[in-house]
Nucleic acid binder design. Structure first.
Ligand code: MN
Ligand code: MN
Ligand code: ZN
Ligand code: ZN
Lengths: 160, 160
DNA sequence: ATTGTAATTGAATATCATTCTCAATTACAT
DNA sequence: ATGTAATTGAGAATGATATTCAATTACAAT
């Protein structure tokens, strides 16, 4: 289990944040943090809980929910997709800013980077004297696979 | 109470949608629809309920929640801002597509139009063979007023 | 106008992600 | 080692939204 190398800086970042705010670096917080470094791109609060149970850790869901805002404020994760039944989070530390396409049929999330968009957004904020902390672009629709499936279903209907 | 002129096309649109789907144009649905035409830019489900109570209408909250998806599917409203405690809706019929800045301090919502962004989004969807039904850009941050207030508070702290 | 029937309604209840309460425990500065 | 404020888990609370069900209603066909 020697795969925690990359998380060292994660942990440093988190520790610094906690110290700065008179908060304690507890066993539970460390375990939540590590569970997150293991998660793939996008995850729910519940995913962290399941991850920890797999690892025989007994951190409660309450503590996970209490830790999430700390991880957000320390710049390690952020809430990405709202409006479903539960919030989707993702790691942001050392990851380039990007946007999302969400398939309404299969739920797939497609990421994309768009420097042009960033420029436009900065201009808009400057023009409106608005201090932005977060840009969030979400394109909802249907992915390539689902479009294919839907077209095939239509064909079959016509044949019958 | 002769101020329902502008809602005629709203009502037509809704009636057409309902007929197309074997749904009935009930007294309650008409009242919800009219309550919505009266709402200002952005509103919650609860706002509709309050509006109707003011007008001595007894449409239940359950019916309002059941009517909202119908209004969305008929192209009259859409959910705009998620992630707060409740969903923010807005009218979209005959309204140009636009984006939002949300102040994290006072909750103010600032709308803006951006044709350049639309072009970029269309390109991205084409490149990914993604069929978009909805673009949603939300910029979170702090509005001009709140920034002023925060700066003044800082000054006062220094003086004390 | 009457009738048949599927759609709709309000009231109450359920859902379910997230937050809160509180007594017991713990991190960590001194 | 000690003091104290922060933290924890368990369970209860919250609150927006969804669902159940028996009674009502819209409306197409007669
Ligand atoms: Mn992502
Ligand atoms: Mn708007
Ligand atoms: Zn898909
Ligand atoms: Zn503000």
């Amino acid at each position: 289990m020697g795969c925690i190398l990359a998380s060292t800086t994660y942990e440093e970042q988190f520790k610094n944040f906690l110290k700065k705010n008179n908060l304690k670096f507890t066993k539970e917080r460390r375990e939540v943090l590590r569970a997150i470094t293991i998660q793939r791109d996008h995850f729910h609060a519940e995913d962290i809980y399941q991850q920890l149970r797999k690892q025989k850790s007994n951190v409660s869901l309450a503590t996970i929910y209490r830790t999430i805002p700390l991880l957000i404020d320390s710049g390690l994760i952020k809430g990405t997709i709202y409006g479903g039944e539960r919030v989707v989070y993702e790691k942001v530390y050392n990851k380039p800013h990007h946007y999302h396409m969400v398939c309404l049929n299969c739920g797939k999330i497609i990421e994309f980077i768009c420097p042009d968009m960033e420029v436009i957004q900065n201009n808009i904020c400057r023009n409106n004297i608005f201090l932005s902390t977060e840009y969030n672009l979400e394109i909802k629709g249907y992915c390539q696979d689902c479009r294919r499936k839907m077209m095939n279903e239509k064909k079959e209907q016509k044949i019958q």
